[in-house]
Design a protein around this nucleic acid. Structure first.
Lengths: 192, 192, 192, 192
DNA sequence: TATGAATGAGTCTTCATTCAT
DNA sequence: GATGAATGAAGACTCATTCAT
């Protein structure tokens, strides 16, 4: 009847809220520091709710990481749209990177997923998706090799941002991407 | 005499063993998962020994991270030597990267330091040293901008290796580095 | 069902039992010697229960001390009632003191509070309450100065009892109180 | 040869220093908070020295408490001298009390002894000495009963000072002592 | 003899997980 | 089903005491 009661009738959304809270916390405090209590408080649900929907904290953590992976997908969708509309030129990529760097939360979220993936084989596929998809957008234009190299460089840029205070300049980014993506003069090795 | 006998008294090396055990564990399970118990077991010392030499687990962790940092320095010294002897060409860099990727332990150690640095301001300087030094070697030849870009790319390569099973090909690395480090045709922006 | 069965769920009274156990122990072994384990054992609850209800041992200690303070208040209420009914004469006070001395547990409890208060500024107010209230009852009859002096003397009597085996005689108490509370012959300093 | 060597040749004085350090610490942090390490640091001796001279921490603590008792004796000697020279009048006693209250360290030291004595039967005799001796000085003049009452009052004054910020006035002290020590008008109960 | 390293018992505290209500 | 109380296993840390050197 009341709002509280209404909410209680929707286990599905409560579950989602818990996962979302866990995901937030993973980004904020690291995957190893999330606890049932922390999650319950953040989600605004009783402690028991966090064990009701998830057999194990580990399971909840995994689902939260999956949720962060979904966020990555959302950001990739945006990138794909921009690349399709404006073309995958170094200038456009540079602009996209700079937008990405400006979103500290997203940067931290991606970092958390990758960090967790290093130690957890199950997460590796998730962590790879970001660069795989980005590579996928670039392959039709530049071929697998250069596309991969560009994605690798962009990953390097993101890690640079996580441990430096000064961001890399647009000029640096664009120059490097231009160099990476330029056609080879030797036609025997053009793309693969 | 009996099994309860105290261990030999050699504080210096015991301390070193504990730090080494902690460093190993940081690399293996991540900086947030090391505990006194784990370290004591790995080092083969009683639990109390890990608290005798270090006021705080945090202090022990820091020292272990410093120890990993020293390893990084050792690797950098090797890189510098090679670059000075053979020249900092894309081919030589590629060869060095591939050597680096072959040492899974070193790769994981560097990753652990960087990962820890993301959340700990005190470690950021340590984590930056690797790319700063590498950049420093390249600056005299390529200028700051391209040197930095190359270092960023190489960091990207290392992160790629941490979450992929198949390594990047030498051709990809060399092509990309060649592109990143090539002289600009536009003389107004050559180096900085 | 089996021996591993959880205890009944009655948080309120369980909390009270823990505080009561802590209070008992403070009286018995001193505020500095109470530990979670000791309290848990005395209260007949598992160790974890003592930390579930109180964030900190300090918090538990405070609550126990408060609880002892409440006992003091109860005794004071009794004293007030007697004084109001029979008048605050030396004879009545002497009788009350002797009743107080007969209750070894109460004597020890008051001592524990005062002892703890010496080192802990937050407890000082609590420790002062006893003599302040007693003084308050006497002020209307004898004025602040003599009332305070009488309370101070009575405190001395209680401390005497804590470290002596033989109690002070009623005659001694009554004589001293008579002397302390007698009207001054010099009218210039009568009461204040 | 050096000063350090000379000191090492005098185990007796080193022992004394350790006991003195322990006594200081008991007064400062309470009898339950002294540790070997704390004592060693305060005394400026190596940790091992504190276990070399005393089988047990408890033994060291006891000796330190004895040492505090000796300090009490020294203060009593002073009091005796003053009382013998100026007479044990309320005015002289008041002056002495006020001197005593001004020495916060001594006040704390006496308190520590009494507090420890409450829980430790072995110390009770020590704790009683102060008031017994004071009583002894007054008995020849006032008789046992009034002398005891005065000593009890003075103890009350000292405890008052330990938990109040404002000291009792000289007028209050002198009035009370005058009342306690005055000759009884009824000759049947004069002294005992 | 003097020192301080070695050890393990014990302290507070946090939590995952279970399960009574 | 939903809640949060219950429990015990760790975790970090401190220290008395022992004993090699």
């Amino acid at each position: 009847m009341s709002e509280g009661a209404r909410r209680r009738r929707d286990p599905q959304s409560r579950r989602r809220e818990i996962v979302a809270a866990a995901a937030e916390l993973i980004v904020e405090v690291g995957v190893g520091a999330v606890t049932h209590r922390l999650i319950a408080e953040r989600a605004g649900v009783p402690l028991g709710a966090t064990t009701q929907y998830f057999t194990t904290l580990d399971e909840l953590r995994s689902e939260a990481l999956l949720c962060l992976g979904a966020e990555v997908d959302a950001r990739i969708a945006h990138i794909r749209a921009v690349l399709e509309q404006h073309g995958a030129t170094p200038a456009v990529l540079t602009e996209l990177i700079q937008q990405g760097l400006a979103d500290a939360r997203a940067l931290a979220a991606d970092g958390a997923v990758v960090t967790a993936a290093v130690d957890d084989p199950q997460l590796r596929a998730l962590a790879r998706r970001w660069s795989e998809q980005l590579t996928g957008f670039l392959v039709p234009v530049y071929g697998t090799r250069r596309a991969t190299a560009a994605a690798v460089f962009i990953d390097g840029v993101l890690w640079h941002a996580r441990i430096h205070d000064e961001p890399l300049s647009a000029a640096l980014l664009e120059d490097a991407l231009t160099g990476i993506l330029r056609p080879r003069t030797d036609p025997t090795t053009t793309s693969d």
